[in-house]
Design a binder for these strands. Structure first.
Length: 510
RNA sequence: GGUUUCGUGGCCGAGUGGCUAGGCAGCGGUCUGCAAAACCGUGUACAGCGGUUCGACUCCGCUCGAAACCUCCA
């Protein structure tokens, strides 16, 4: 659907900053800027990485559908995160490099590639720009300098720290996450390098690198590396401007990461840079966050191959995607085999419904009476029923991207399709077309579900199946059930399911 | 301890001040050579205790329980 007119839709999004749903009004429509915190590439992507990627893919896809010109920026963090419990504030990437005797950039490249491969398989659209922190050291140094010039940072022994206490005299550090500065001052745990800070709540903008530290860059304050909140501030404003529309990320980044981004931009630029803050909730396993540090994560590769001890079977990328979209992005989502299996079956039903729709015979005009063909009997409930379904999909998306409600509406569509196939309801040609459009738009374009069957050999496969089913039909007509069942069982082993209906047999792949 | 959020039927998961979410599983039926699929029917679920209200699962308070963040994590 082409549609600048779609922008007339009133899209409401939940802004973490105000904790309310707000009408989405881009700063300079139709252009829209969106920045999302991407992965730190020092490990294989797991289910936790899939959540924000899919969540903001949904946002991206819907904004595009509405006709906005979106520039979507998602960073790759390949430098900058300090490891607190190791000496010298060693960089995470560098730690892995030493263990595996590889160059840090080799590690970053390897895992970034892995990330792309798995996000592609989840049908996550690639962002417009995927900047790397290591490629923006100059921008980060310039930003540190601006913050120093503005008087909200201080240098100690080649490191530069943000002066939270001074910043708080004019601005409100903690407004995004609801923290109170006094608590932060007293409750922040003692860390290495603490003695250099004036206050416990201060955070590093630039860290001096010890001689053995391999990831290092020259700066006005000596050789070192950027603090971990800095890259997002530097890269988001570089590519989206000083004030842009949407900043997204996981809820676990709210504090201190996003809180500090706000402070950095305020200090360096003179105003905040983000209009709408969006945060996705966590994926949990046994009620606990699935994360690297807890060691309870399951990688996407393990899901796809079924090779993790907690998995009863393999789950396809689309099952994972559908599973995530069945929950609202701001709810926690608990992993379990039962939930995943339910998602798998539900998705299969949805896709089967779409296939049935494509095969639905058009209603035959009733026999001519007096030279006039009677029009097909309209659906019970009136012609508007399919329109209502489409409206329900839009309403759901406009209400803070409520994908579970979209899915519920699509299931209602499947019910109607199947009833039509069973001849208990009649769909007009126009209604059939509209249903097809709803599925194409919402299931495939916006929810980003990919119909995994098909491909180059689809035409050959269709022809072969037609032939096989014709032969089987002959054996059925002579009540040769042995041959009939033999064909069905053999096909089942190839994951092709034969369904015998009143109008003959049909087939589907799993 | 503080901040933020949450507690919905066997499981997952929406939503709302009075009217069916939806999926999966179960049960009954229709269809079918058998099977699968599909369709129809089927569940007085909203942590507990108070309060506001004609009426609360939905608003307010308290209690209990859970999670995220306060240290790298999506």
């Amino acid at each position: 659907m082409n549609s600048t007119e779609n922008m007339d839709h009133q899209l409401y999004i939940h802004n973490t900053a105000s904790r309310k749903k707000e009408l989405f009004e881009p700063i300079s429509p139709p252009f829209t800027g969106m920045y999302v915190c991407g992965p730190t590439v020092y490990g294989d992507p797991h289910l936790g990485h899939a959540r924000p990627a899919i969540t903001f893919d949904l946002v991206y896809r819907y904004l595009l559908h509405l006709g906005y010109k979106v520039r979507y920026v998602r960073n790759i963090t390949d430098v900058g995160h300090l490891v607190a419990d190791l000496d010298e504030g060693e960089d995470k990437i560098a730690v892995r490099a030493r263990l595996e005797q590889l160059e840090p950039m080799e590690i970053a490249q390897y895992y970034a590639d892995r990330y792309f491969i798995y996000m592609d398989s989840l049908n996550v659209k690639r962002p417009s720009i995927e900047p790397r922190a290591s490629g923006h050291i100059i921008e980060q140094i310039l930003m540190v300098q601006k913050i120093l010039d503005a008087g909200y940072a201080y240098e100690v022994n080649g490191s530069v720290y943000f002066d939270v206490e001074k910043y708080s005299r004019t601005y409100e550090y903690g407004k995004l996450s609801g923290r109170v500065l006094e608590d932060l001052m007293s409750n922040t745990r003692s860390l290495e390098g603490q003695d250099e800070k004036r206050n416990a709540a201060d955070f590093a903008l630039w860290k001096n690198a010890q001689p053995e530290h391999i990831m290092r860059w020259p700066s006005p304050w000596g050789d070192g590396f950027p603090g971990w909140h800095l890259e997002c501030s530097a890269m988001s404003t570089k590519y989206l401007g000083d004030y842009f529309d949407i900043h997204g990320g996981g809820m676990d980044l709210l504090f201190p990461h996003h809180e500090s981004e706000i402070a950095q931009c305020q200090a360096a630029i003179g105003h905040e840079s983000v209009k709408y803050w969006l945060h996705n909730n966590m994926v949990t396993i046994n009620g606990q966050k699935m994360g690297k540090s807890l060691g309870n994560f399951i990688t996407l590769e393990e899901f796809f191959t079924g090779t993790h001890a907690s998995l009863k079977q393999a789950y396809s990328p689309m099952t994972i995607r559908f599973f995530i979209l069945q929950a609202h992005y701001r709810s926690t989502l608990d992993f379990s085999n039962e939930a995943l299996q339910a998602a798998e079956k539900g998705l299969k039903k949805l896709l089967a419904g779409y296939e049935t729709l494509g095969r639905l015979p058009l209603p035959l005009p009733l026999p001519k009476q007096g030279g006039e063909a009677s029009p097909p009997t309209p659906l019970p409930g009136g012609e508007g029923r399919i329109c209502d379904l489409r409206d329900a999909c839009y309403s759901a998306m406009n209400d803070d991207f409520n994908s579970p409600m979209v899915i519920a509406a699509l299931f209602e569509g499947v019910r109607i399709i199947n009833s039509a196939a069973d001849k208990t309801e009649i769909l007009t040609e126009a209604e059939t077309e509209m249903l097809k459009e709803i599925f194409d738009t919402f299931l495939f374009e916006i929810l980003g579900i990919k119909n995994e069957k098909g491909g180059d050999n689809q035409g050959v496969l269709d022809g072969l199946m037609q032939l096989i089913l014709a032969i089987r039909q002959k054996s059925r007509e002579t009540k040769d059930w042995g041959t009939s069942d033999q064909i069905r069982d053999a096909l089942q082993k190839l994951h092709i399911t034969v369904k015998d209906g009143k109008e003959g047999s049909s087939w589907g792949t799993e």
